[in-house]
Amino acid sequence: MKSLGHILAIIQKDLLTELRNKEIIMSMLVFSLIVVAVFNFTFDPGSEQMQKTAPAILWVAILFAGNLGLSRSLSREYENGRMQGLLLCPMDRSLIFVAKVIGNIFYMGIMQMVTVPVMIVLFGVTIGSFAGLLVLILFLGTLGFAAVGTLFSTISANTKSREIMLPILMFPVVVPIILAATKSTAGLMNGDPAGHIWAWMKILIAFDIIFTVACYLLYEHVLEE
């Protein structure tokens, strides 16, 4: 119960900070829209090819924008030695990981609430009655991404050029998650047989579990100084 209180305290503190300066959400939102717009230029308007690649573009946008937000979310914690302040608190240090992952999922969720509908309109994609399923896929993809991203942005926040280091570390490793998420989304948007969506969603869930557990277990090692 106490642990829950600590997690909540960290999340509330993070959200209050974000509410005041809006750095993370605004930069992610604008950047994801830019990615969507830029990719849009590479196709003939209204072509079928454009709709086919929409899921991939969506996840590339989430990946790039998420990278920005994750980097900021953790480097903020290292200003004024704040992470030391957290490490000094009498609690299990893996709670920091849990709180940070939840916070990062929240930021990315807000970004997706705007980016995904815009994308659906701009690319003329039909999702029919599967909106709930789409939300689930977005959540699953974001969960795995946020878990890996939280671990690696903690690492990159302590390197000399953190903005460069984070994508170099993170992108190759999250390939499986992004691939499974893209495939699930594509199945949904292109109206593939439902069996394929489920097959890919199961794979996505398996990857989420593997990566979240691994990152959770390793997180304490990157915190210690």
Partner: peptide
Amino acid sequence: ARFAAVFGIIGFLDVPIVYMSIRWW
């Protein structure tokens, strides 16, 4: 060294996962 160790473990764990995901793809 500690960062590299963490990354080395995750990276190796990633190898079969990347392989499988692309095979299924």
